[in-house]
């Protein structure tokens, strides 16, 4: 929590001048979910409440509420070390939540979970996002674009981009292209596409076993090719099996920004 340059303010409290107050605003869920494994779930959450100096009068009630909220009620009396990974993750989350921090910092909260647990944790995070500021650090970008409404990409300690996931995806949508899978036994497609003015480039991606071929067709400018392709191919009796507009994901945005930063 210390620093080399500049200042860190948490909800207006300087972390060096008022560390106690600043730390009270934060709930931190570390990576790899470190827990006191020889305590029971309830004891652990109570201990976290104690070291976070939750008022003694309301402590018990708060602990109960958080255990309920994170879905830990049925394992409350079990030792933390006997829990599954998914439950441990929840216990760690409960530990972060205790003491009503305004800011939640979650470091890789869904690593090592099975798909069902992942969805559960994500839903929990979304739920928490309504009442808390959630800072989520993750390498799973599909998760980020699903949950977050603001993304900060950091490369080698420098902020490369701050934006909404949608904006970031749009920014890198460089070429406007369409993926089509067609049945074209006479191989007319190249000739046809050369006659359509809006098409810049056509490229064969793969020939499938059933005789269909997949192409990527790049357009000039901002025209939506799908309409034109549909109409033209139908005229020539080329059957379209599948057609998809290439959309960029947060992964693409990430790669592009990181590469740009490294040059």
């Amino acid at each position: 929590m210390n620093k080399l340059h500049g200042e860190i303010k948490v909800n207006g409290y300087d972390i060096l001048k008022k560390p106690k107050k600043a730390k009270k605003e934060i709930g931190y869920m570390p990576e790899g979910v470190p827990l006191y494994t020889d305590l029971t779930v309830k004891e652990f959450v109570t201990y976290m409440a104690e070291i976070k100096q939750v008022d003694r009068k309301i402590r018990k009630e708060k602990v109960e509420k958080i255990i309920e909220q994170t879905g830990l009620k049925e394992v409350g009396k079990k030792l933390v070390k006997n829990l599954s990974r998914g439950y441990k993750q929840r216990v760690s989350m409960a530990g972060a939540l205790v003491g009503d921090p305004k800011i939640l910092i979650l470091d890789e909260p869904t690593v090592g979970l099975d798909p069902k647990q992942i969805t559960e944790i994500r839903n929990l995070i979304k739920e928490l996002g309504k009442t808390h500021t959630v800072i989520l650090s993750s390498h799973i970008l599909s998760e980020v674009s699903q949950i977050c409404n603001k993304v900060i990409i950091i490369n080698k300690g420098k902020i490369v981009a701050i934006d909404t996931p949608e904006n970031l995806e749009r920014k890198v949508a460089s070429n406007n292209s369409v993926y089509v899978t067609v049945e074209d036994p006479e191989n007319k497609i190249k000739a046809i596409t050369q006659n359509i003015g809006d098409i810049k480039k056509i490229e064969l991606i793969e020939e499938n076993e059933d005789g269909t071929k997949q192409y990527v067709i790049e357009a000039k400018g901002e025209v939506d090719l799908r309409k034109i392709i549909f109409a033209e191919f139908a005229k020539e009796n080329i059957t379209i099996f599948e057609m998809k507009k290439a959309d960029s994901t947060l992964e693409d945005a990430f790669m592009k920004l990181i590469e740009g930063g490294n040059k």
């Binding site: 929590m1 560390p19 470190p34 070291i51």
Partner: peptide, 12 residues
């Protein structure tokens, strides 16, 4: 085990 992170980030 990394539990010291819990202590260091607490107001204690």
């Amino acid at each position: 085990t990394g539990t010291e992170q819990l202590l260091l980030t607490s107001p204690l």
